[in-house]
Design a protein around this nucleic acid. Structure first.
Length: 420
DNA sequence: TCTGGGGTCCTAGGACCC
DNA sequence: TCTGGGGTCCTAGGACCC
C-alpha cells in the first residue's frame, strides 16, 4: 500500500510555528517579489482568499490587519521540510520525497493502516509543530485522493484509508474531476464538456478514448484510479535535466547595463546549484521577458542558447557565457520585468564529457569553486561573488515582511520570554 | 502602482543517417 | 508513368506537478 504525507498549509504553518500568536488567524504567504498568494492558513481560506491571487487585490484585508502577510522564506521552509521528512523516514522503510511538503511511502500490506497513519501524524506534529495529513491506498493516485479527503473532512482526523472497493468507489464519486492528481485545468475542462464531472465518471470512459485524448499519462491516471498501480515509488531522485534560476524584478529594467547584474547573479546561482548536486552543464541560456500584465507596453520574450567551451560548473565560465548571450538577445526599447538563466545539457560531474581537442580541465577550477562555496556556506550566501553581480541592485525583488531564519541562522535564533 | 519559481513528460514534425 | 524502408535526434508546443 502507498501512503502520502502532506503538510497542511505548509508555508503558513511554518510561520505559525514560530509565531504562536498567529494561531487561528488568517495568514497568507506571498510568492517572490511579494507578488501573489502561495499559501493560506485555514482562516485565510475561509475568508475566501484564493490561491494565486495577486497581493494588491487583497490589500484592504492586509492593511486593515484582518490578514497577516508574510514574504516567502524558503530557507526556513526548506529546513522545516527536512525535519518533517527525517521523522517520516525514521518510521517507514521506503520513502519518496515528492515536493517540499509531500512524501510518498510504502507500508506493508495487512497492518492496521489507520493506526500507522495516526502515529505518523502525531510524531510529526510533536517533533516539528507542523500539522500534517496522511492518505493511504493501493496506488499513488488513490493515496493522493485519500489525502485530499483526510484534509477536507474533519471526521477523518487527518488520516484517510482507502482499502476496499466500496471505499474506493465512494471516494471517486466524491472527488471532482479537476481535483484528481494528473488532471489539470485543460484536461478537466475537456472532460467536463463530455459530462465527466467526478473521478468516478472518468473511470467509466473507455480506456482507448482516454489514451487518445490524454496520451499515456491520462491512461496511467485512469488505471491508478481503478486500483491498478502503475506509478512506482521513486526513492532516488533522477538527475536533473535542466537547472533554472529566474526572478521578477522589483522594478522594470531597460538598459543592457542594468540587466548585466541580475543575469550574472542568476548565472552564478545556477553554478552553485550545479556544484551542490555534483553536476556540470554544457549550455547556458539567458532569457528576458517584458511585463505581460502591461499590454499597453511593447512586449517581447527573448532567449539564446550559448554552448559552453566544455561542460562545467565553474561560475566564472557560466557568468561570462550568460553575459555574452545577454548581449545577443538584448533589444533596446523594451521595459524588462523578468529574467533568468537555464542550464542545459547536464551530466554528473563524474561523467563529465571531455573535448578531444581542448586542453584538459584545469584542476584548480574545482578547488577554487569549492573554496568559494565553503566561504559562502560559512559566512552567508554572497560573501564572495563575481564583480558582475554587483553592477546594480535596484532589480532586487521586494520582500517586505520576511520572517527571520529561525532554524538556520544563529543570529536569528528565537527569543523566548518568560513571564514572572 | 502592484500579478512567482522550478521542474517533468509526451507528441508531432522536420532534418538527417544508412 | 514511375520515386523505399527503417531508424535517430532535435525542437517546439502543450500538458502536468508543487
Amino acid at each position: 500500500m502507498f501512503g502520502l504525507l502532506d503538510c497542511n498549509n505548509f508555508y503558513a504553518s511554518c510561520e505559525t510555528v514560530f509565531n504562536p500568536n498567529l494561531r487561528g488567524r488568517a495568514v497568507v504567504v506571498l510568492s517572490n517579489n511579494d507578488g501573489c498568494v502561495i499559501a493560506r492558513s485555514y482562516a485565510a481560506k475561509e475568508m475566501g482568499i484564493k490561491m494565486g491571487v495577486p497581493a494588491f487585490q487583497i490589500k484592504d484585508l492586509i492593511d486593515s490587519g484582518r490578514v497577516v502577510v508574510r514574504s516567502s522564506n524558503y530557507t526556513l521552509y526548506g529546513d522545516m521540510s527536512r525535519r518533517v521528512m527525517q521523522i517520516l523516514s525514521q518510521m517507514v522503510d521506503d520513502i519518496e520525497i515528492y515536493s517540499i511538503d509531500e512524501a510518498f511511502f510504502v507500508i506493508p500490506d495487512g497492518i492496521d493502516y489507520v493506526d500507522m497513519g495516526r502515529r505518523i501524524v502525531d510524531a510529526i506534529v510533536m517533533a516539528t509543530g507542523i500539522p500534517v495529513s496522511v492518505g493511504i491506498a493501493a496506488t499513488k493516485t488513490l493515496a493522493k485522493m485519500a489525502n485530499h479527503a483526510a484534509k477536507k473532512y474533519s471526521g477523518f482526523r487527518h488520516v484517510c484509508v482507502i482499502d476496499n472497493d466500496a471505499r474506493r468507489v465512494a471516494a471517486l464519486k466524491l472527488t471532482p474531476i479537476d481535483d484528481v492528481w494528473g488532471i489539470g485545468r485543460r484536461y478537466a475542462s475537456r472532460l467536463q464538456s463530455r459530462d465527466v464531472i467526478s473521478a468516478f465518471d472518468f473511470t467509466q470512459l473507455p480506456r482507448d478514448l482516454v489514451r487518445r485524448i490524454m496520451t499515456v499519462g491520462g491512461e496511467k491516471t485512469w488505471c491508478e484510479l481503478k486500483g491498478i498501480s502503475c506509478i512506482d515509488l521513486e526513492q532516488v531522485a533522477p538527475d536533473k535535466q535542466q537547472i533554472c534560476t529566474s526572478r521578477s524584478f522589483g522594478v522594470m529594467l531597460e538598459t543592457l547595463d542594468e540587466l548585466n547584474g541580475p543575469i550574472a547573479t542568476f548565472a552564478a546561482r545556477c553554478g552553485a546549484k550545479l556544484r551542490r548536486d555534483k553536476l556540470v552543464a554544457g549550455t547556458v541560456m539567458p532569457f528576458l521577458y517584458t511585463n505581460r500584465f502591461r499590454p499597453d507596453l511593447p512586449q517581447c520574450a527573448l532567449h539564446h542558447v550559448v554552448a559552453l567551451p566544455h561542460a562545467t560548473n565553474d561560475t566564472r565560465v557560466i557568468v561570462s557565457a550568460a553575459l555574452d548571450g545577454l548581449k545577443v538577445i538584448y533589444r533596446p526599447g523594451f521595459l524588462y520585468k523578468k529574467a533568468g538563466v537555464i542550464m542545459g545539457d547536464i551530466y554528473p560531474a563524474s561523467r563529465r564529457p571531455i573535448d578531444l581537442f581542448s586542453e584538459t580541465m584545469d584542476p584548480s577550477t574545482d578547488c577554487f569553486m569549492s573554496a568559494i562555496d565553503s566561504i559562502n556556506q560559512r559566512f552567508g550566501p554572497g560573501t564572495v561573488k563575481s564583480a558582475a553581480e554587483l553592477i546594480n541592485q535596484k532589480w532586487r525583488p521586494m520582500a517586505h515582511s520576511r520572517s527571520p531564519n529561525y532554524t538556520t541562522d544563529i543570529n536569528d535564533i528565537i527569543d523566548i520570554w518568560c513571564r514572572d
